[in-house]
Design a protein around this nucleic acid. Structure first.
Lengths: 150, 150
DNA sequence: GGGTAATAGTTGATTTTGTAACTAACAAGT
DNA sequence: ACTTGTTAGTTACAAAATCAACTATTACCC
């Protein structure tokens, strides 16, 4: 049986390594949440993010969404196309800068947003329920810091 | 406690939504860590995980790695192929069950593992440094819980 | 004004992933 | 032994992500 390497002291424990733990937790939670919403509207993760940003913050440009959500502009571009095809989203060209497009949800999009938002709220509450209130506050704070959202 | 049913009123804040925060944090941290190690050995994320599992836990089967790391077996399969091509990993067929292959790092693979592990330790310490010791302990604990690693 | 650089967003080519079907080997019941 | 079911791992094909190049527009600055 191979044993952990012994040339150097190996007190490293992968299961304590923060990037690994973060990925595992994010993956697990996202997948579970996806199982809930994917069936409903066949929404991809990036589309979900765009929808939620527009629903939550109102009219935004693609660039702003990309910056806030740390999503690359090509991903945004394609997600916007798909949302537009489904009539969840509409574009308006800025009249001060014709490169810029303002994005906003249509009524149908807003309806879907509200539906998914409620599901999201419930799911978030369910997750938070595994911890004490103080712990959850601290957790969110730490995650924001790690995400560079401080 | 949070109240479950808010119908029209939109008190939902995307930036507080745990799945979103977890993804942002994981993405940010992974990308930064990747910037460090990717240049060195052109390693993909799944390959990195396989390498670390073998380096950290010793000889394992593909299935075991998949279970521990919550990575699908096709991803493992392909990561193993690439690691084998680079001579970082070797396989041995089990003689009690010929479906099973034991995977282990070669000397070259172990060398790369040690190098990356040291980088990982430093990076983990740097992350942990943003918080108090107690906070970090709690964070890891909560992430393990969220990841279902309880 | 004219030339260059920067920006918003899109498109195309290449990689990577996800899903499902597949091979090969074992297991268990009859 | 034979059928059925399960498991480890691979492969094929479709979907999606990534990266670079592209269009169109605006900003800078001499």
């Amino acid at each position: 049986m191979a044993k952990p390497d012994s040339h150097k002291k190996d007190d490293f424990d992968l299961q304590e390594f923060l990037p690994f733990l973060l990925n595992m937790a994010a993956e697990e939670v996202s997948l579970e949440f996806q199982r809930i919403y994917k069936g409903r509207h066949g929404m991809l993760r990036t589309e979900w993010r765009v929808l939620f940003h527009l629903g939550n913050f109102g009219e935004m440009t693609a660039k702003e969404i990309g910056q806030r959500a740390k999503v690359h502009k090509t991903k945004i571009s394609r997600a916007v196309q798909r949302l537009e095809q489904r009539r969840y989203l509409a574009r308006t060209q800025s009249n001060t800068d014709r490169r810029v497009e303002y994005l906003r949800l249509t009524d149908a999009g807003a309806r879907v947003y509200r539906e998914l938002r409620d599901i999201a709220e419930q799911y978030d509450a369910k997750l938070a329920n595994a911890f004490s209130d103080d712990e959850v506050i601290l957790l969110r704070q730490m995650l924001r810091k790690l995400a560079g959202m401080v």
